[in-house]
Design a protein around this nucleic acid. Sequence first.
DNA 1: TGAGGGCTTGATATACTATAACAGTTCATA
DNA 2: TATGAACTGTTATAGTATATCAAGCCCTCA
Lengths: 157, 157
Amino acid sequence: MPSHEFQAHDHSHCVSDAMNAALVHCEKNGLKFTPVRQRVFEILLSEHKAMGAYDILEILAKEGMGSQPPVVYRALDFLGTHGFVHKIEKLNAFVACEHPGSDHDPAFMICRSCTKVVEMNGSPNSEISSAAKSMGFEVEAIVVEAEGLCPTCQDTE
Amino acid sequence: MPSHEFQAHDHSHCVSDAMNAALVHCEKNGLKFTPVRQRVFEILLSEHKAMGAYDILEILAKEGMGSQPPVVYRALDFLGTHGFVHKIEKLNAFVACEHPGSDHDPAFMICRSCTKVVEMNGSPNSEISSAAKSMGFEVEAIVVEAEGLCPTCQDTE
DNA sequence: TGAGGGCTTGATATACTATAACAGTTCATA
DNA sequence: TATGAACTGTTATAGTATATCAAGCCCTCA
Ligand SMILES: [Zn+2]
Ligand SMILES: [Zn+2]
Ligand SMILES: [Zn+2]
Ligand SMILES: [Zn+2]
């Protein structure tokens, strides 16, 4: 059983790796990684969970960084456009990307018990792509979200 | 290239097949396929497109079948629970099931140009299931939604 | 230097999606 | 006929997302 983010791990590495990758990517591409954007990213990095835009906004507001919805939606739009966060459609919520730097179609596992959200390794989407292609459909983006129980929560049920 | 619902076809068969299957299933299982539920299903069957709850409600209202959101959401809940319609998470919208009667994890193709939504044949989800299983994750439900261009719309671009 | 232009932020208002809660009705059945 | 379960009507409210316009910042080029 490979280790992964559902299990206990040194999460400070997740945070620093992702933040560093984002800083480097913005630097290289002349993107403005402004304080609000950076703070929203930090908030999403703090746990492997999806957060609603309004949950994030509440934190920002307490810190005096903006109190209106557009503030957080604009930051999320920036972060999503550049691949730093993903939207979880099933939850109408957002999660920090775990594979920074690589352009990828993410696929997620959502634990309904502990609410953690983890990206699958690799891109297990080739079967879907080829099923679509065999019907003549040209895929541009794929949403893959598996809901269920993570290893830890299976044990405690 | 197999034929499918993106292309021209005798759509009246889609409608009558699905409605018959639903009627039979409700009959067999003692489910109450009430006028509102039946009408909502008909509306969703009229095209291979996803419709928002409020679009459906607008039609119901014109016909004097209920004018408040709970009416349509309750009907959609019934239809979803019994597998007659699916929710498209990416669109926050609902579509009639094309494989009535069979218990299945649907996978969708969404054309961004003509907005048609078609279920893939088979369940091309085994790759995802096994990727999840290899990480110890127990899948209970899968959302698969591929967005792109259908065969027809590729030609006209 | 300072006028312009593009991008970011602030702020107000509004649109869109979904559910909670309770009252009234229908219908099967005990 | 009484009882209860399920469906419908209705009001109110919660939750998610965007349109729009004004104001500020930063870079660049005349
Ligand atoms: Zn971590
Ligand atoms: Zn869990
Ligand atoms: Zn059809
Ligand atoms: Zn199309």
